[in-house]
Nucleic acid binder design. Structure first.
Ligand SMILES: [Zn+2]
Ligand SMILES: [Zn+2]
Ligand SMILES: [Zn+2]
Ligand SMILES: [Zn+2]
Lengths: 130, 130
DNA sequence: TTACATAATGTTATATTATAACAATTTTAA
DNA sequence: TTAAAATTGTTATAATATAACATTATGTAA
């Protein structure tokens, strides 16, 4: 028997929901929306979210406690993430900018420390809200 | 009567606590530590934190839901923040790097959008933990 | 196939983080 | 002095997240 993909049942349900959403989804919004599919309790949601974040299928927008599907094949399992966040309409876009990624991935602080991972959140007004 | 500074009583108590801490403090840790000074309830803490963030005296480390005092006179009232976060010992340092700030403050995404503000969190191992 | 390990699930309860709502007091500035 | 704005105090509750434990499903190697 072949596996069609690497996601479990709950992970797939929750990924599908996030992936088709045009905006970041919060854990309890997700819970509410998947209850008809048999996912009834917070730990089921948080466990799936943890795994999806870990494998880079989704990202957490830390400033919003919300989750978006990865739209950037280049973010290397969430080691280099950057987002554009509208302060008016809540819209979030993942930024795919090779130069930016390269600049930050190779950043050394004054002590010469290199980092394994970064997360960058830009705030402003999106095109629509400007 | 002259004002010594621009912080109210509760704001000053909470700022002093955060400012003398070597690590990020969480809201309920703060609450516990200031109860002997008469600050008894969460809203008092969160209101002071909100104001201190707003005025740039402290920053919120979004990935940790914790607060640190600003160590960078150049972060321009929290419009341009960058942190180094140790994944092992929880240590957080504010990064003061004029080139980095300049690079990110002038960043344009592919649609030409410029942003008002950014927050960058680097993750890795600090000197001690490496 | 069996049998063991690992991963995923289901479930209840609880911990942690944050805000709503409203009353009272203090500070500021016209 | 007085009215607006800011701050404080207080109770209750909302929103976010995890602990703990039992069960089931899946992968893998003898
Ligand atoms: Zn991504
Ligand atoms: Zn917008
Ligand atoms: Zn700062
Ligand atoms: Zn460390």
């Amino acid at each position: 028997m072949f596996k069609e993909n690497n996601l479990s049942k709950n992970q797939q349900i929750i990924f599908d929901l996030i992936n088709k959403s045009s905006e970041p989804l919060k854990a309890y919004t997700i819970l509410f929306n998947v209850q008809k599919k048999g996912i009834k309790a917070p730990p089921q949601v948080y466990r799936a979210l943890d795994k999806l974040v870990e494998t880079g299928k989704i990202h957490k927008i830390e400033s919003k406690n919300a989750f978006v599907a990865c739209r950037n094949s280049n973010c290397e399992i969430s080691k280099a993430t950057a987002f554009s966040i509208c302060e008016s309409c809540e819209m979030v876009d993942e930024i795919s900018d090779a130069k930016l990624t390269k600049y930050l991935s190779s950043f050394n602080d004054k002590k010469g420390t290199k980092y394994k991972r970064f997360n960058l959140e830009f705030f402003g007004l999106c095109k629509k809200c400007k």
